[in-house]
Design a protein around this nucleic acid. Structure first.
Lengths: 127, 127
DNA sequence: TTGACATGAAACCCAAAGGTTTCGTAAAAT
DNA sequence: ATTTTACGAAACCTTTGGGTTTCATGTCAA
């Protein structure tokens, strides 16, 4: 329910920008108001604000108004999605368990992330 | 070293696109020529080709020419970079020590006068 | 040799992304 | 009451991104 809210931006896209990546690291140390965050970057405060909004839309940060300031804090949950996606490739690094793992995965896990519409999945009729 | 080849695109950026994400999953099942890959997507073969190049520049795939066709195969190494980056946040869901850490962080942060952390320094001159 | 197949390169389009500046407004501070 | 401070919204600009179509080239098949 709460975690899987309709996110306008997906986490992959949100993390594509280095500044944004840096920001969530910054926020990993705690809540911070916009101006303070802005102090860490060579871009305008407004630009920082926009980045924060993208992060918020991806569910990676959450804001909270305190008087005239808006504090942002990290919301790490969406990163799990990334982790999960990544785990698909685990077989490449940690073999050992990979055989078993693959069997388990074969049992119906069908991540819907970047798979795109099912139409794309048509069997290859090509050569 | 091979792994750290000069990558024009970083892995985060490469994975930002859902089609590209899908592609490397496709290739996880084995080497494949462009036209075959192309058969899985509703876009032109040329577009697919471009995506493949982005992936290649990020080091995520490698190409190999066989006669008149070019086969692409997954090169999962760069994903480790992602994994490593992600591990920075392990403390959030991988509790134990994090509980302590959070208590420390949370110490006295309730009152709104808590302009604590020195990291919040200098407000940069607003535009 | 002639022709069909596989693929990359080029030129072009349009929408989205990242920035900036300017302005408005609400909450401190004085 | 007036001025600062903190911030978002809007309008605007320029670059990048994903897509397409057309063209050129190398390779396999007849």
């Amino acid at each position: 329910m709460p975690a899987s809210a309709a996110r306008k931006h997906d986490v992959f896209q949100a993390l594509a920008d280095p500044t944004r990546r840096s920001m969530i690291r910054l926020l990993a140390d705690g809540e911070m108001p916009v101006t303070a965050i802005s102090g860490h970057y060579p871009i305008s405060r407004t630009a920082v604000s926009k980045h924060l909004r993208v992060l918020a839309e991806a569910g990676l940060v959450k804001e909270r108004k305190i008087g005239r300031e808006t504090r942002y804090r990290l919301e790490p949950d969406p990163l799990l999605e990334l982790k999960r996606w990544l785990s698909y490739f685990d077989r490449y690094w940690d073999n050992k368990l990979s055989a078993l793992k693959r069997m388990v995965e074969a049992g119906g896990e069908d991540g819907e992330d970047g798979w795109g519409p099912a139409e794309w999945r048509k069997p290859k009729k090509d050569a």
